[in-house]
Simulated assay, not measured.
Amino acid sequence: MTSALSVEFCGERFDVAAGDTFVVGREGDLVIDDNPYLHRRFLVLSEDGGLWWVANEGSLLSATVSDGSGGVQAWLPPGGRLPLVFPTLTVLFSAGSTTYDLTVTTSGDFYSPTGAPLPQSGTTTIGAVPLTSSQRLLIVALAEHVLRQDSPGRGSIPSSAEAAERLGWPLTTFNRKLDNVCEKLSRVGVQGLRGERGKLATGRRQRLVEYAVASRLISHDDLPLLEREQQANGEFSPSHG
C-alpha cells in the first residue's frame, strides 16, 4: 500500500493520504500565490502502481526535482512525470522573477542513488562541477534571496543589472560570466540553460538558481562571499574567471 505523503511550503505542512491527489498552483490544494506567471494547475502529486508521482501539467514552466542530498536531480518539463523514489525530495520552480521550493517527504521502500536507475525524464547524476571564484559569486548573488530562506518557500531572483550592482561589477562583466557558467554547466549535461540552435535560454538565471540550489552546488554557507566581494571592491577590481 502506498504510504502517506507530506508537502512543506513556507512553514506550512500539508498531509496527503494514500489515494488522494494534491495540486500545486494558483488554484488547488496548495495555492502558491497570485503570481500571474504561475499556472493555475501546475504540479500534481498522485499515486499509481504503488508509488507517488509528480506530474507537470503546466504548458510553459518546468520544475527541478532533487533527492535530499542533491546528488540526483531531474528536470521536469511540461507534460513530464516522475516517480517520487526517495524519502525526501526538493522541488524547485520559477515563475517570473520568483523561485519557489517545496519539500516532499514520504516513507516506504525506495530506490538507492547507487542502485536501480530512475525512470528517465531529464534525470541526471552530475558530479561536482568546478567553479572559479567569480562564477561562484555570480551564482550566489542570483540565489541570495532563495538561500536566505529559513524554510522552503519563495525567493526573488534579481535581474542581471541588480546582481551586477550587488557585486560591484560592470553589467558587461556580469553578463559575460553568466554566459560562461551557463555554457560550462550545459556541457556537463545540465538541461534548461541552453535554448534552441545552441543559444542560451532566456530564462537561464532562474534555471541556474534552481540547479545550483537543488544540487547543493552552492549553499547558505556561501553567502558571506557577497560581503567579502563588496569589501574587496573598495580596493581591488573584480577578478576575471
Rank of each mutant, 00 (worst) to 15 (best):
T2A: 10
L5Y: 04
L5V: 02
G11P: 03
A17N: 14
A17R: 15
G19N: 10
D20A: 15
V23N: 09
E27N: 12
L30G: 10
L30R: 09
L30N: 10
I32V: 15
I32W: 01
D33L: 02
D33A: 04
D34W: 05
Y37A: 13
L38H: 07
R40N: 11
R41S: 13
F42E: 03
L45F: 05
L45S: 03
W53R: 09
V54C: 08
A55C: 14
N56E: 09
G58K: 00
L60T: 15
S62A: 15
A63K: 01
S66M: 05
F86R: 05
P87Q: 04
T88R: 02
V91C: 09
F93D: 05
T98A: 15
Y100S: 01
L102K: 03
L102W: 00
Y111F: 08
S112N: 10
S112C: 08
A116V: 15
P117Q: 00
P117E: 02
P117R: 01
L118D: 03
L118N: 05
T125F: 03
A128C: 10
V129M: 11
V129P: 04
V129T: 12
S133F: 14
S134F: 08
A141S: 14
E144H: 11
Q149I: 08
S156M: 09
S159N: 07
S159M: 07
S160I: 07
A161Q: 12
A164H: 02
W169S: 06
T172N: 14
T173R: 15
F174C: 06
K177E: 12
K177L: 14
R187C: 08
R187K: 14
V188N: 07
V190S: 07
L193C: 11
R194A: 07
E196V: 14
E196A: 09
R197T: 11
K199E: 10
T202S: 15
G203M: 10
Q206N: 11
Y211P: 00
L217R: 11
D221A: 14
L223T: 05
E235W: 13
